[in-house]
Amino acid sequence: MLPGGGGGAGDDRKRRGATTDEEDATSASAASLNDLCAGAGAGAAPPPFPRAAAWAVAALLAVGLGVGALVLAVVRSAALLVVAVLLSAAVAAFLAWNAAAAASGRALRRFVDGLPASSLRVAADGQLVKITGFVSCGDISLISSYEKVENCVYTSTLLRKCATWGSIVLNPWNRCSKWKLTHAERFAADFYITDAKSGKRALVKAGHHSKVVPLIDENLLVTTSRDTELSSTLKYWLDERKLSSEEAQLIRLEEGYIREGMRLSVIGMLSKKNGDAMILPPPEPLSTGCVLLSFLLPTYFDGIVLRLVDRSYFVPNPGVS
């Protein structure tokens, strides 16, 4: 969400050092805000393995199974069929493992955590860098959608509902084994990061339609059951977005953010011009490379990567509300 809170426009301009009138300030804030959900489908990074390659491997394994079955029927030897079945199972497990790692971001997290931190003092212009340090707001700051946490540079609020088959909930015991994402709000803005190695500060261009890859865990704030009475805050939040607020439905609300003062790792292309340092999205998708010990194929990322180091706000086991 855009900043605003309870202060007036004049107070807001004063807090950010703006010198334009109210309309210009509002327009500048809207232009700097980056709606990550709106651009999620554009310029997506390629999958860990091409779909054509997966189909080709599947066809070869099918041929192997067919030949094994034929040998079993003619020669009465199951050795080739057993080999084909075991090989098919191994390949299927390998592909499923890599697909899950790419979808969950596990492969990219391993890459980010294993990459050595760079120094703004010695890194060259145009170099891919990983800068770790403390975050400070830029021209605008964000407020989280549900908890109303102020002075954020990135916010994420996700609403999930229990998957249904027709009008019947899959699990009849007030528990849900599959949650479907039905509403998402992800925003980012330009911010500064102070390099822990050199003490220098760089502007991270995460706003204004930049490509951003957030590796940020959301807190589970609300989980409802059929007999849960929705709080007034949750009802207002749902009604404000014209979302269904029926008492009987099973829903989860999750929220994450990067707030000023948190410790963050940023991966992007370094730009040094006129003595100012900026971290920009890479011009094209980049590969993480193979991780042989973990059986991981190369995965790709397209944009500035944000990896939160400070997890002090994260509550892993919240109660039902």
Results as ranks from 00 to 15, higher is better:
Ala62Leu: 15
Ile279Met: 03
Ser88Leu: 03
Arg241Ser: 09
Leu33Pro: 11
Glu246Thr: 07
Asn34Ser: 09
Arg226Pro: 02
Trp97Ile: 09
Ile279His: 05
Cys137Leu: 08
Leu60Pro: 03
Gly114Leu: 07
Pro285Ile: 14
Ala18Ile: 04
Ile131Asn: 03
Arg51Cys: 02
Gly126Leu: 09
Ala69Gln: 13
Tyr154Lys: 00
Val169Gln: 10
Val135Ala: 01
Asp302Cys: 12
Gly319Ala: 14
Ala40Cys: 02
Met278Gln: 15
Thr299Met: 10
Ile131Ser: 02
Leu95Trp: 07
Gly4Asn: 08
Leu86Arg: 05
Arg160Trp: 11
Ala124His: 07
Leu142Asn: 09
Cys37Tyr: 07
Leu65Met: 13
Cys176Ile: 09
Met269Phe: 01
Asp227Val: 12
Ile258Gln: 07
Leu33Glu: 10
Ala52Asp: 08
Ala101Cys: 08
Ser271Glu: 15
Ser141Val: 04
Gly199Gln: 12
Ala31Phe: 09
Ala90Gln: 10
Leu72Ile: 00
Ala28Glu: 08
Gly66Phe: 07
Ala62Asn: 07
Ala89Asn: 09
Gly261Trp: 01
Ile193Gly: 05
Leu270Ser: 01
Leu95Arg: 01
Val212Ala: 11
Tyr236Trp: 08
Gly5Ala: 05
Ala30Ile: 06
Ser287Gln: 06
Asp125Asn: 02
Asp21Ala: 12
Gly319Phe: 13
Glu218Arg: 00
Gly166Thr: 07
Val212Ser: 06
Phe49Tyr: 09
Ile251Leu: 15
Gly303Asp: 11
Ser265Ile: 08
Phe314Glu: 11
Val83Glu: 04
Ala93Phe: 05
Glu284Ser: 11
Gly39Ala: 06
Leu221Pro: 03
Pro47Arg: 05
Thr223Ser: 13
Ser88Arg: 04
Gly126Ala: 09
Val305Cys: 13
Val122Trp: 14
Ser27Gln: 15
Phe314Ala: 01
Val305His: 12
Arg121Lys: 14
Leu243Glu: 13
Met269Cys: 10
Ala25Gly: 07
Glu247Lys: 14
Leu65His: 02
Pro214Lys: 05
Ala52Leu: 13
Met262Lys: 02
Phe295Gln: 05
Ser118Met: 00
Arg263Glu: 15
Pro46His: 13
Pro282Gln: 03
Val309Met: 13
Met262Leu: 06
Tyr192Trp: 08
Phe301Gln: 00
Val112Gln: 00
Glu246Phe: 11
Ser198Asn: 03
Arg252Tyr: 06
Leu296Ala: 06
Leu264Lys: 02
Thr223Gly: 04
Thr26Lys: 15
Cys290Asn: 10
Glu185Asp: 13
Gly289Cys: 06
Ala42Trp: 00
Thr224Val: 07
Asn174Thr: 01
Ala107Lys: 00
Asn219Met: 11
Ala31Gly: 05
Arg109Trp: 02
Met269Tyr: 03
Ala62Arg: 08
Ala53Asn: 05
Val305Gly: 04
Asp24Tyr: 08
Leu158Phe: 15
Ile143Asn: 07
Pro283Phe: 11
Arg226Val: 14
Ala100Val: 08
Ser167Tyr: 11
Gly43Gln: 05
Met262Gln: 15
Asp195Asn: 07
Asp125His: 04
Cys37Trp: 11
Leu159Val: 09
Asn171Ile: 03
Thr19Gly: 04
Val153Asp: 06
His208Val: 02
Val122Ser: 14
